[in-house]
């Protein structure tokens, strides 16, 4: 029996209503956005200190003048980030897997991994950067790095790996035990079960919190400035002290935002896709 669908008048009417509702939603969103923006701008400009703030923070000439130096510094931030991120991912997964080892033989490794996350998650990032940045060169070890960029990057890696390891661990724990049983019943070893069954599912599940940590890492690269290298914040500071104008800080802030916003949208996109894959029913 073949039946072909001819859209009924009722459905046409219904779609017309839906379209009208969509149009109303868009115009409501537009109007409320315009109102909010106008209120914020008017409120700012009406405040008594606005002329001074505009001169010191939102000065177009200062922005143009400081941007090249700040941007050059910002490339260093991006470099630190790009080097640290893959290392953190690998080490974090490694630490998480160590903590998941069941055999009593591996107790020391498991304990070490737990100790590591306990300690490094507890130390404020800035403090850790000081400790490593000033402490390691003071040891005067043969071959130990004393470039502040390298030391700062190491400190960031140590700190963020402990967070990322916990994210991975919670992802691994969230995979239902029946998946493990199914894999082990096929004769896969613990390692193979992790490699082929558990970790692939866990990684998919923790992508949004991981990206969250990386947005945080992008910003914290600015903390390396405290060791002296000329990255974005340091360059902005130099300009601000030199010209007594803080617009350079705004320029640096804009650059950081320009980097984190696409990442945030990407996270949203991944979350939405995951939700669609689970079945779109409300």
């Amino acid at each position: 029996m073949t039946t072909t669908w001819v859209k009924s008048d009722r459905q046409k009417e219904r779609e017309k209503l839906l379209k009208a509702r969509a149009r109303r939603s868009v115009s409501a969103a537009t109007i409320s956005t315009v109102v909010v923006v106008v209120l914020v701008v008017v409120g700012l400009r009406a405040s008594p200190g606005w002329p001074v703030v505009q001169e010191k923070f939102f000065n177009w000439d200062a922005l143009v003048a400081s941007l090249p130096d700040v941007l050059r510094g910002f490339l260093l931030n991006v470099t630190i980030f790009l080097i640290a991120e893959p290392v953190i991912l690998l080490l974090g997964l490694g630490v998480a897997l160590l903590r998941g080892l069941r055999s009593p033989v591996f107790f020391p490794l498991r304990a070490l991994a737990a100790l590591y996350t306990d300690i490094f998650r507890g130390i404020p990032v800035l403090l850790l950067i000081f400790l490593i940045g000033f402490g390691v060169p003071a040891l005067r070890l043969q071959g130990a790095p004393n470039d502040p960029v390298v030391l700062g990057t190491i400190a960031l890696i140590l700190s963020y790996t402990s967070f990322v390891a916990e994210v991975f661990r919670s992802g691994i724990d969230s995979i239902h035990p029946s998946q493990r049983s199914a894999a082990r019943s096929l004769g896969l070893s613990h390692g193979q079960t992790m490699r082929y069954v558990v970790v692939p599912q866990a990684v998919r599940r923790v992508v949004p919190p991981l990206l969250n940590d990386f947005a945080s890492l992008q910003k914290d690269t600015a903390l390396v400035a405290t060791l002296g290298p000329l990255e974005a914040l340091r360059q902005a500071q130099i300009y601000a002290y030199d010209k007594f104008n803080y617009t350079s800080y705004v320029a640096a802030a804009l650059l950081f935002v320009a980097l984190t916003v696409p990442m945030a949208r990407f996270t949203d996109h991944l979350a939405a896709r995951a939700a669609r894959q689970r079945g779109g029913a409300t």
């Binding site: 669908w5 859209k7 009924s8 009722r10 459905q11 219904r14 839906l18 409300t282």
Partner: peptide, 19 residues
């Protein structure tokens, strides 16, 4: 839980598939 693509469902003489 699913929206119909055509047709109507009424409960107690009220169309529930009305948008």
């Amino acid at each position: 839980l699913e929206t119909v693509d055509d047709g109507a469902i009424t409960l107690d003489d009220v169309e529930i598939t009305d948008v």
